[in-house]
Amino acid sequence: MKSKTALISLLLGILSFIHLFGIEKAAMAIIFGTIALKEGLEDKKSGYMAKSGILLGLLYLVVLTVVSIKYFPEMFKLIENLK
């Protein structure tokens, strides 16, 4: 692949049409961070950046999952009451 930034541009353009509470951004952060680490990085700073991106993406997904697990049962109860 000649230009990785061109590929990233294309992927982000496609993702502009998808809105899933930021899940798509977290997924991209994790995937690109993992790819960067597997390819091998020349300096420590890049490694820290990739790891930070992965951790932030995972943290967001965990927070969103915890909030969903906490609040969705209430919403489901509300739906059952409205039936």
Binding site: I30, T34, G40, I54
Partner: peptide
């Protein structure tokens, strides 16, 4: 500096 361990194998399945 090919990273091995937690950061290469855990994040994607967890995600």
């Amino acid at each position: 500096r090919r990273e091995k361990g937690f950061f290469t194998w855990v994040p994607v399945p967890a995600m």
